[in-house]
């Protein structure tokens, strides 16, 4: 009786250790890469997924994407929290203006509402995560190839918070653990964050390819903190970038 139990336990420990090591290695490789991404043909189309995180997040995101070349980003996915009608109407209005290419809406269950307690939010977050895992990590593997000939949810996902963007980042990152193609991830911290990062920014920073803040003082503070906390040669967070205001 004891022996099989011990076997089960030790194999569980082993599996978790292997998974954790794999995760750390993949995160490290995501940020240690020094070569530029493989070159793309100028006229090659790409697919872009944009998360409209409601309220101010949506307002900032609409400004972030307002100058994109829609001939290039010819396939769009607008990710919206279910019930967020305002973001949905903004996405539809922009698509009407674009009038070229194709787009879809993906409505995900909410991870956490403003004022919702941190006590109940793990449960809603789990449901949200399961939904994202299916639509972002798994379903694309079974679907036909996208515009760039890869089985990915999108070539690029643009995120700017809030907490509900974490399950999206996790789901998009996951295929990398199995060496499968995955979307590039860009996180742009809100203009509202002048001195400290948001919780969602801290959570997604290890997973995203590029991480932007919009205040120079915040960039400098983060760089200083990173230098202090450096652990050996491991690179477990995206380097912080600053290009001025992006909105």
């Amino acid at each position: 009786m004891i022996v099989p139990l011990l076997l089960l336990l030790s194999s569980l420990v082993l599996a978790i250790t292997v998974l954790a090591l794999r995760l750390l290695t993949v995160i490290h490789h995501t940020h240690a890469r020094s070569s530029p991404p493989p070159r793309r043909q100028q006229d090659a189309p790409a697919s872009l997924a944009v998360f409209l995180g409601s309220g101010g997040h949506t307002a900032e995101m609409m400004r972030l994407v307002s100058g994109l070349d829609w001939q290039r980003y010819s396939t769009r996915v607008w990710i919206i929290s279910s019930g967020d009608l305002l973001s949905e109407s903004k996405a539809l209005a922009l698509e009407k203006q674009i009038g070229t290419g194709s787009f879809t809406l993906l409505r995900i269950p909410r991870a956490r509402r403003v004022h919702q307690s941190y006590l109940t939010s793990p449960f809603t977050t789990l449901y949200s995560l399961a939904y994202c895992l299916w639509h972002i990590s798994l379903a694309p593997l079974l679907a036909s190839v996208g515009p760039s000939g890869r089985r990915v949810f999108a070539d690029l996902i643009l995120l700017n918070g809030p907490g509900s963007c974490v399950p999206i980042a996790v789901s998009a990152f996951l295929p990398r653990l199995l060496d499968l193609p995955s979307p590039s991830l860009i996180y742009i911290e809100s203009l509202a964050r002048t001195r400290r990062l948001s919780v969602s920014a801290k959570l997604v920073r290890p997973l995203v390819d590029r991480f932007f803040v919009q205040w120079e003082t915040l960039r400098d503070a983060l760089r200083e903190g990173d230098a202090k906390r450096k652990v050996g040669a491991w690179r477990l967070k995206a380097e912080v970038e600053w290009e001025g205001w992006l909105v």
């Binding site: 991404p37 994407v65 860009i186 290009e243 992006l246």
Partner: peptide, 18 residues
């Protein structure tokens, strides 16, 4: 600070290898 639509375009394009 003025708004520049080009900045975000450049970020996206360089990430994807354009």
């Amino acid at each position: 600070p003025a708004y520049s639509a080009k900045k975000v375009s450049l970020i996206l394009d360089s990430t994807l290898g354009y």
